[in-house]
């Protein structure tokens, strides 16, 4: 119980720090929206004024900002006039989440089994093949995969329509491919090396010595231990997918948060940029929290802490 409470408190604290950090970054970094060096068009200045109450003392602004934040009010967008950041995020979230979700499922369902097979057939041809593909997947950036895919399958072969269509299943292939390329390869490699390491362990030998069937040794004794580092990776994986979505949505013209974010960057829509950053950061922290809780179920050593001596 102690463990869980600690983790939740830690998460909240981190969120708080990030929100604060972001706020002060906006003010501290030269060239940011609030510095006097910047001359903004009148209406943006007015929106900023409304949102951040620029004339008030710093702390008061900070307090207002935090209060707004806690109420999930991220302010008005600069570039898309008339819309709030909340609305923009809410509009884009479903599709981004959907594609991200599909990506995660695929990564787990493909990456882990491949890693296991590769470990079991170490140094045989299939292992080499998998390792080569996995290395390529990890090193070739997602935007290259994305554009290559569109070029070959969209332009040259014309198998895939060039514009994303929510209802057309085929248009999901490219984005998902580009989004998962890195992570599925990473998971495969991680599972493989983890499995290999676990299989060297003494307790595997003990299980075999006690007559446990080879199948059980692998699927029960080895697997549970081997998956521990993989579960730990889920956090970074979510991060990779999040940031990957910026590029992928841009290249494939998918109307998700990522695309809006990149547009926001181009247009210097500060509230949008900050809002999405804080939103994504919060999302990430919650994901990591969930993973940590999940992790405690798999590895009992974590929550029980130090062992009690005889």
């Amino acid at each position: 119980m102690n463990y869980y409470i600690r983790r939740v408190v830690s998460a909240i604290f981190t969120l708080f720090v990030i929100a604060t950090l972001t706020f002060f970054m906006m003010r501290a970094i030269p060239g940011g929206p609030f510095t006097r060096e910047r001359s903004l068009p009148a209406e943006i200045e007015a929106a900023l004024q409304a949102q951040y109450n620029l004339d008030a003392p710093l702390l008061e602004q900070y307090a207002e900002y935090m209060i707004d934040l806690v109420q999930f009010d991220l302010g008005p967008s600069f570039s898309l006039k008339g819309f709030t950041v909340n609305q923009i995020i809410a509009a884009g979230f479903p599709i981004t989440a959907l594609i991200g979700f599909i990506a995660v499922i695929l990564i787990v369902l493909i990456g882990i089994p491949i890693g296991i097979i590769s470990a079991l057939k170490q140094n045989k041809p299939i292992d080499y093949a998998v390792m080569i593909f996995a290395t390529l997947g990890v090193t070739i950036p997602s935007f290259i995969i994305a554009t290559l895919f569109l070029y070959f399958f969209g332009v040259k072969l014309a198998w895939v329509p060039l514009l994303f269509n929510e209802d057309n299943f085929v248009t999901y292939i490219g984005p998902v491919l580009a989004l998962t390329g890195y992570s599925v390869s990473f998971v495969a490699r991680l599972t493989r090396s983890s499995m290999l390491e676990v299989l060297q362990q003494d307790y595997i030998r003990t299980a075999r010595a006690n007559g446990i069937s080879e199948f059980k040794v692998l699927s029960k004794h080895a697997l549970k231990n081997a998956l521990i580092p993989v579960v730990t990776y889920i956090g970074p994986m979510v991060a990779a997918i999040m940031t990957g979505s910026f590029v992928v949505e841009n290249v494939f013209a998918i109307p998700g948060i990522g695309k809006r974010f990149v547009e926001g960057v181009t247009n210097r829509d500060y509230t949008l940029i900050v809002g999405v950053t804080v939103f994504y950061a919060a999302f990430y922290i919650i994901m990591v929290l969930i993973v940590d809780i999940l992790y405690s179920f798999i590895d009992p050593r974590i929550k029980l802490g130090k062992r009690r001596a005889d």
């Binding site: 003494d202 307790y203 003990t206 010595a209 006690n210 549970k224 231990n225 009992p300 050593r301």
Partner: peptide, 20 residues
Amino acid sequence: RGNDISMIFQDPMTSLNPVF
């Protein structure tokens, strides 16, 4: 194995599966 002939090993710290 484990039934008619059994074996115990040197390092008890690592010979038991830590997650069960």
